[in-house]
């Protein structure tokens, strides 16, 4: 499916993502990484530790609803993958980010902002792997 190039909206959205990362560090001293956030929900250090993570995820999920309230339309979520692909892909993401110690937000934004060589290697690896996967699915298999 074709999507429109949206440089300004995407830059502004990225700015908000960065603002959230900075505020979380300022307020709670935590890295804004979705992997670590969810990992702590699955195995929280304490009830209090669980609560702030749950509140944050709830806030994230409110994002599209605020969008709906402001614009009158749902944000577009087009999923080409079928159920089997979603389950296999979801398993790969879950196992991968756990062993890799982070994902796009944790390594790709917070880690790179801290100039972490580990995060740079992780980011280059998952970006290259995702690009290769998309190439194979769209241009080799031709799905």
């Amino acid at each position: 499916m074709d999507t429109t190039f949206t440089p300004l909206l995407s830059l502004a959205g990225g700015g908000l993502i960065g603002l959230a990362a900075v505020l979380l560090m300022l307020g709670l001293g935590r890295i804004m990484g979705a992997t670590g956030l969810v990992a702590g929900l699955l195995a929280p250090a304490s009830g209090r530790d669980w609560a702030w993570r749950a509140a944050l995820v709830l806030g994230m999920a409110t994002g599209p609803l605020v969008w709906l309230a402001a614009t009158g339309t749902w944000p577009q979520v087009s999923v080409a993958a079928g159920p089997v692909q979603l389950v296999l892909g979801g398993l790969a993401v879950g196992i991968g980010v756990t062993f890799g110690g982070g994902c796009t937000s944790g390594h790709g934004i917070c880690g790179l902002a801290r100039l972490s060589p580990r995060s740079l290697v992780a980011t280059l690896t998952f970006m290259a792997s995702a690009a290769l996967t998309v190439y194979v699915i769209r241009h080799v298999i031709g799905a």
Binding site: A81, Q85, L88, G89, G90, L91, A92, V93, G94, I95, G96, V97, T98, F99, G100, G101, C103, T104, H107, V121, A122, T123, T125, F126, M127, A128, S129, A130, A131, L132, T133, V134, I137
Partner: peptide
Amino acid sequence: GSALFGLGWGM
């Protein structure tokens, strides 16, 4: 781990 994550992300 990162390569596997990229695979799932791309899928």
